[in-house]
Amino acid sequence: MIPQTDPKAAYLERKAEIDAAIARVLDSGRYILGPEVEAFEQEFASFAGVRHAVAVASGTDALILALRALGVGEGDAVITVSHTAVATVAAVELVGATPVLVDVDACHGLDPEKLAATLAAWPSGAPKPKAIIPVHLYGQPAAMNEIMAIADRYGLAVLEDNSQAHGATLDGTMVGRFGRIAAYSLYPTKNLGAIGDGGIVATDDPVLTTALKELREYGWRERYVSAIAGMNSRLDPLQAAILRVKLSHLPADTARRRAIAAAYDKGLAGTEGLRLPQTRSGAVPVYHQYVVEAPGRRDALQAALREKGVGTLVHYPVPVHLQPAYKGRVPLGAGGLPRTETVALSVLSLPMFPQLADTQVVQAIQAIRDVCRQAA
């Protein structure tokens, strides 16, 4: 069976380096924050092209702490999308703010036209908009130039959810550098993934950086004395050491993801009933996922591929606004979310991870073509 993703393969490929890094931390005797975490923060900031990075316990915490550092809380509204991991929306509510969900465009990112229409028609008496969270879903950059222009027009902060787009660029600029602050997940299946959970926040702003460091550790400015109300969200030094190894190989891993995507593009071109991923002009994705759309036949395609030994996943089967915890109570943007609801029924993530062999890619392509041909 060809797996859709395989984080263990990433460990086995660099087992000696990772095991040595773990041993280094165990021998150090420093098991909370410390030099290993600081070194990872510095190396990640250099990779991301920003001045500062603050490592935290998860990607969800990265969003929460970024929002809190921006001063977002009760009485505020944050505009984002429903076609995303639920963490994006959960983080907004966890800081006491109101999420307002806007439809996506053909590249599965926040639709600038719908964003502008939503802000233009903002209802009086509703929580005031304070921030926008564009999500670079599947490793595809969102329409940041247009989004930033709208944000500037309305005086809104932009927090980029970069959890699936480590290293993606738009017009030569790495995503995460457009807004004031960016949050990244370091979950095991991410392009840069720990062996456990983790997250990191990146920014050029020293004031936000100070706030993030205080907020992640109880609001301490001096040990055991909370100057502000914070929380406990510290990246483990063991994970930091592992991530330092993986970060050094991330450019090569990204190149491999792009090569796999190019093979899919070529091998699946013209396949009846299948829509291949769309990339906006000027964008260079990092293909956290390679997501096709199979309108009206996604589930049948997935089942047939499983029988042929090709694993796939659906990211994400139920939009956040239709999930039981949120349905009927989360405000929606102008025009509703018709594309979001449509793509949730058609998207399918093909096998995608750097250790995927060329023979497996060829096998997956042939299986997909065969299934689609038989269906036609």
Rank of each mutant, 00 (worst) to 15 (best):
Q4C: 13
Q4V: 09
D6L: 07
D6I: 03
P7Q: 08
A9D: 12
A16V: 12
A20G: 06
D27W: 07
G29P: 12
I32K: 10
I32W: 01
E38H: 10
A45K: 04
V54Q: 07
A57E: 12
A62P: 01
L67H: 09
E74N: 10
T80E: 10
H83I: 14
A85Q: 05
V86W: 00
A91P: 03
D103Q: 14
A106L: 12
E113R: 14
L119T: 01
L119E: 09
A143R: 15
M148K: 13
D152G: 02
L159Q: 02
H166T: 10
T173V: 15
T173Q: 09
M174V: 00
V175Q: 01
G176C: 07
A182K: 05
T189C: 03
T189R: 11
A211N: 13
E214G: 13
Y218K: 04
R221Q: 14
V225S: 14
A227N: 04
L235G: 07
Y264M: 04
A269W: 01
G270E: 06
L274C: 04
R275T: 02
L276K: 11
L276F: 14
T279S: 09
T279A: 09
V291D: 08
R306C: 14
L313A: 15
P319H: 09
K327L: 11
L332S: 06
L332R: 03
G333W: 01
L337H: 01
P354Y: 02
Q360V: 05
V362S: 12
A367Q: 08
R373H: 12
